[in-house]
Design a binder for these strands. Structure first.
Length: 1051
RNA sequence: GGGCCUAUAGCUCAGCUCGGUUAGAGCGCUUCCCUGAUAAGGAAGAGGCCGGUGGUUCAAGUCCACCUAGGCCCA
């Protein structure tokens, strides 16, 4: 006869099981069907942030993907249609650098020599390679996302969408060209990334000069003062445009000899010495707009040469007055922008001054320093000249000193929409909420224009064409480009170098010049932020699909994306549609290694996700990511924590299911077929289990609606523990007997629990669902992921019962502690236990019986009732001590400062109980009335009892009569036989024949007295004193003087 | 240099929103107990100046200020 359930071995290889489940999903197209199933439902829009397809996937990639999977699965089970489109971020410097490394290149000149077309082809290949690995990782971890429709930011459709959006921004006048100061190597002719700069610092000695700038207007002018300005780059003095001071710092005019110099007050003595005499003091802001005579008249700089204010100025070193050359310093450039000053750059890209300039014409910038110093000296402008040792960046390739250099660059004027960004941010549902006004809000408040362009090769080309007359044309599509050129370019690969070759007659009215594309590509972060429309190729294609899927209801990434994707998504959405691209965002903390360090290739501490999946299983990794610690805190991951998840959560869950299957099959119980009593006729414990189940459904649902996976996971783990370690433990006997009420209850709990857990751990739940549900209910879907999310039945949640069971378990714990302290094992029955606990009186008999069973006592009585009883025996009130304690939380509200005095009076017992339960307390002569809950009463039994008490009290009567001892012996024997059954390899349902003999009188008497009971417990069809006829291996126990032999019945 | 986050047992983390009695859990360790599913469960023990200093308060791990260390992002 077939068993109702497929057997579920207790031993399970989770990673192997996961691989089987993955195959089954693919065969049965479960993901596709889950989307079809919800096609008519309301849609819940999720955007997949495209990972950079560069490098190998690491465990930190797994983290975000787990959260990206959980909520869409949850919403899908709730009936929402959650389209999930994979995406790949294909462009950018990281890809270029990886390819450069592969090819052994050291700079842009190598790329140019190799050929841009060939180089970009290599980049494309590299992307494809890494995407394959990401896909494999994604599938293995059970992240359901549609790869067939994946968007690639390098696809022509995608690039065209970006162009369209840039044209919208351009037409609003927000895409403009300006200067950008960046570290630049004049020999290599290229800007360097921060990463490159960081590896090229060298300690060098530079001139340090203090120069006089005579003041010509403002408060210092009447004194005939000069600003004293300090710099370590004399060559930039040629381009001096302004002087910056800190608005809140005190500046002094000080007389030294026959001149007056202006310096910051805190630096006065360090710079001018003790002899300087202060003649005037101003706040920096009072000096604003004071004009001065610049040190060199070599280049024209109009409308400049006055004092500006800047918060970045420090009084750490120098003079507190900072020379400004906007072309050669990012801070300087910012100040210049604010004051509308021109950016004048007399240094050519090769690092030499323009030909024809006085003094320095044609000279390499560094070589100009001594010339300039000498000239200043000769003209009496040099106050002091020293050598200064400091760390300065050099080109990591050629050791040339870098130049901070203003390069022409394209900007998006995000500052123009800053207020809108702040409004959109305020309306965004951040998890955790602190990010909104904290890290992210702060970033928005300090918003600066987006430096969009990159002087590189592998990226979305900036679709701007410029003619010789400087007319700009921004092109929004290949079709538009075709109409401008007159050729059909709709099949053109819109990348460099092909796009660079496209020119057309300037469309500007009356202009006859030819327009060529500007050479830059764009920041790949723009690509990622453009995915809401880019993934559809919208609006050129699929405009309707885009319209209904904007904005996203949910996105999720780690904290480093505040300045990355979170920003670019919101900024582009606001710039193009005047609306942020997402409503809810979950922001995760980073995953660290076991030592708390960020995982990086550099440190070699990257945990390979595939290794974790194969060793512990993807479910274990998922559960850890979702439920251990706060998702928004940085967390450490290692093998130990994953092993714990497997043991405590996954295996406990699996084994509970395995237990059900074992006894359901043994008793031929089939859910829905074998009749079971209605819930309200089942034992109290069954109603408790169902109550906990529904309370869990309620809380998990609420937690997930709030994007709080940790809270949901905690509750689920609690239910698993409740079922395994209380419900099943307490109900074992009923399962052995095949009680349909118990089997139905556990089956229902596991069935609902499996659905609750499915979004978290999709593999093991699928395997359990298949065995517990799919195989027995033909009308239900063949996958848990095609089921509906559980509905809570609030009528079944019995809070009072829940609290009573908590008390029961608490009392059991206390009783066990009492036994331990008396050194009496639980197998030895005791006559009675006394319980002192609020709520014990109202505990139903069924629950009192649980306590008695667990503690193995024959009688359970309230302590108060027993006290009088025992008092008669022992002649006094000595059995119970009563102690009182004040409840500070209650007393504090009533008494404030007097709280400690009142509490002391209560502890001293100066109180009388009133009829309504409240107390009169005698506090230093005056009587105060306090409510019942202001006094905590504890009763403590005395001598002859084993006691455990923490809030509640359990006392055990330690008298062991000969009758009790014999019962204990019988139980010991049962245990020994069970052990022997197990070691013999018998199944739990096998019947046995048993023969025993004993040299110990007490043991013999006990076994004769309790023969029927022992035989029943160990499933013995025969239980006889003596020896079998045939040879059977004996088992002996010296303490009991017992020898017994057993064999399977009927053999 | 700026901003944000974090700091509680050997390790991993709760508790802090809204101050209240003896600061909890898991892992690990020691000793026991229980076991007719379990790689499980239970008891006891060892292990805490709750990062530091000051303040508010009858009362501070919790609120405030400053400091220190680490992390992240940006210069």
């Amino acid at each position: 006869m077939p068993t109702p359930f497929r057997p579920m071995p207790a031993q399970v290889d989770l990673p192997a099981l996961e691989r089987e489940v993955t195959e089954r999903w693919a065969e049965r197209k479960v993901f596709e069907r889950s989307l079809e199933r919800t096609a008519a439902g309301p849609s819940w829009v999720f955007y997949e942030g495209p990972p950079t397809a560069n490098g190998h996937p690491g465990t930190h990639h797994v983290e975000a993907r787990v959260f990206k999977d959980l909520f869409p699965r949850f919403k899908t089970m709730k009936g929402f249609h959650v389209a999930r489109r994979a995406g790949w971020d294909c462009h950018g410097l990281p890809v270029e650098l990886a390819v450069e490394k592969e090819l052994g290149f050291t700079g842009k000149s190598d790329i140019e020599a190799y050929g841009v077309a060939e180089f970009n082809a290599k980049c494309r290949e590299s992307v494809q390679r890494h995407v394959d690995e990401f896909t494999r990782m994604t599938e293995r971890m059970g992240y359901w996302v549609d790869f067939d429709q994946a968007y690639w930011t390098m696809d022509a459709d995608y690039v065209e969408s970006i162009w369209w959006s840039l044209k919208v921004i351009f037409d609003k006048g927000l895409l403009v060209q300006d200067h950008r100061v960046a570290p630049y190597c004049p020999r290599c002719g290229t800007g360097l990334s921060d990463h490159e700069v960081a590896q090229g610092y060298q300690t060098v000695t530079d001139p340090s000069v203090y120069v006089r700038f005579p003041v010509t207007s403002g408060p210092a002018a009447p004194l005939g003062a000069s600003l004293l300005v300090w710099t370590t780059t004399p060559w930039t003095l040629i381009s001096n445009t302004a002087v910056a001071v800190h608005p809140d710092v005190d500046y002094v005019a000080a007389r030294l000899g026959d001149e007056v110099l202006v310096v910051a007050e805190p630096l006065l003595r360090a710079v001018l010495g003790e002899d300087a005499e202060v003649v005037a003091t101003w706040k920096g802001r009072e000096l604003e707009q004071s004009s001065y005579t610049r040190p060199f008249d070599v280049v024209d700089i109009e409308g400049a040469h006055f004092v500006g204010l800047a918060d970045y100025v420090t009084v750490e070193d120098g003079t507190g007055l900072v020379h400004q050359a906007p072309a050669f310093g990012a801070d300087d450039l910012a100040v210049a922008r604010r004051y509308g000053l021109p950016v004048v750059n007399p240094v050519r890209p090769d690092g030499t001054f323009e030909e024809g300039l006085a003094l320095v014409g044609g000279m390499f910038f560094k070589k100009a320093d001594p010339v300039i110093v000498d000239d200043l000296q000769a003209r009496g402008l040099l106050f002091r000249h020293q050598q200064y040792e400091h760390s300065y960046p050099h080109c990591w390739r050629c050791d040339t000193a870098l130049l901070y250099y203003a390069l022409p660059s394209w900007y998006i004027r995000t500052t123009a929409v800053k207020d809108r960004l702040l409004e959109e941010n305020a309306a965004t549902d951040w998890h955790p909420p602190t990010i909104r006004n904290g890290r992210y809000g702060d970033w928005l408040n300090n918003n600066i224009d987006w430096a969009l362009s990159r002087d590189r090769y592998w990226g979305t080309p900036l679709p701007i064409w410029r003619c010789e007359d400087d007319h700009l044309t921004c092109v929004g599509s290949l079709a538009e480009l075709s109409s401008l050129t007159g050729d059909d370019l709709t099949a053109l690969d819109p990348h460099r170098p092909f796009i660079d070759a496209i020119t057309f007659g300037c469309p500007q009215q009356g202009c006859a010049s030819t327009a060529t594309r500007v050479p830059q590509v764009i920041d790949c972060w723009y690509d990622a932020g453009a995915m809401p429309f880019g993934q559809w190729g919208a609006p050129h294609r699929n405009k309707a699909e885009f319209d209904v899927s904007y904005p996203a209801q949910y996105i999720c990434e780690a904290i480093d994306q505040t300045r990355g994707w979170f920003y670019t998504l919101m900024a582009i959405g606001t710039l193009v549609f005047d609306k942020s691209s997402y409503e809810t965002v979950l922001c995760l903390g980073h995953i660290l290694d076991a030592e708390g360090r960020k995982m990086s290739k550099h440190l070699g501490n990257v945990l390979d996700p595939f290794e974790l999946f194969e060793r512990h299983g993807a479910d274990a990794v998922r559960w850890y990511m979702l439920c251990s610690g706060s998702p928004w805190s940085a967390r450490r991951v290692g093998h130990e924590v994953l092993e714990e998840v497997v043991r405590k959560v996954l295996l406990t869950y699996w084994n509970t299911a395995s237990f059900l299957v074992l006894y359901a099959n043994a008793n031929n119980w089939t859910p829905g077929v074998t009749p079971a009593p209605p819930l309200d006729e089942r034992p109290l414990l069954d109603r408790w289990a169902i109550s906990e189940l529904h309370a869990t459904v309620q809380e998990v649902d609420a937690a997930l609606e709030d994007f709080d996976s940790q809270r949901a996971g905690k509750r689920i783990a609690q239910l698993i523990d409740d079922l395994s370690n209380w419900y099943v433990r307490r109900s074992r006997r009923r399962f052995w007997e095949g009680d349909p009420a118990a089997l139905s209850t556990l089956h229902e709990c596991l069935e609902v629990l499996t659905r609750l857990m499915a979004p978290f751990v999709p593999f093991v739940t699928e395997a359990v669902h298949e065995r517990l549900v799919s195989h027995v209910y033909a009308d239900l879907p063949d996958s848990v992921h095609l089921r509906d999310w559980p509905q809570v039945d609030e009528a079944l949640v019995d809070t009072a019962l829940g609290e009573q069971v908590v008390l029961v378990r608490r009392l059991v714990e206390l009783g066990r502690a009492a036994r331990a302290s008396a050194k009496i094992g639980t197998r030895q029955p005791l006559a009675r236990a006394l319980v002192g606990a609020a709520g014990f009186e109202s505990l139903p008999d069924e629950l009192r019986q649980e306590v008695a069973d667990e503690l193995n006592v024959q009688l359970l009585e309230p302590l108060s009732a027993a006290a009088g009883d025992a008092a008669g025996d022992s002649g006094g009130q000595d059995l119970v001590d009563v102690a009182w304690k004040g409840n500070f939380r209650v007393l504090g509200k009533q008494f404030g400062q007097r709280t400690p005095v009142v509490a002391a009076a209560i502890a001293a017992g100066s109180l009388t109980r009133r009829d309504d339960g409240s107390y009169d307390v005698d506090v230093e002569g005056s009587v105060e009335t306090v409510p019942a809950d202001a006094v905590l009463v504890t009763e403590t039994p005395r001598e002859g009892w084993a006691v455990a008490r923490v809030g509640e009290t359990v006392a055990l009567d330690l008298t062991i009569t000969p009758e009790l001892r014999r019962l204990g012996v019988a139980r010991d024997v049962v245990r020994l036989v069970q052990e022997a059954r197990k070691s013999t390899g018998l199944e739990v349902t096998d019947r046995i024949e048993l023969w025993w003999e004993s040299t110990d009188d007490q043991t013999r008497q006990a076994l004769l007295e309790h023969a029927d009971w022992v035989a029943g417990e160990v499933l013995a069809t025969q239980f006889a004193e003596g020896r079998p006829v045939a040879e059977v291996v004996p088992h002996t126990d010296e303490e009991l003087g017992l020898t017994f032999r057993l064999r399977e019945a009927g053999r």
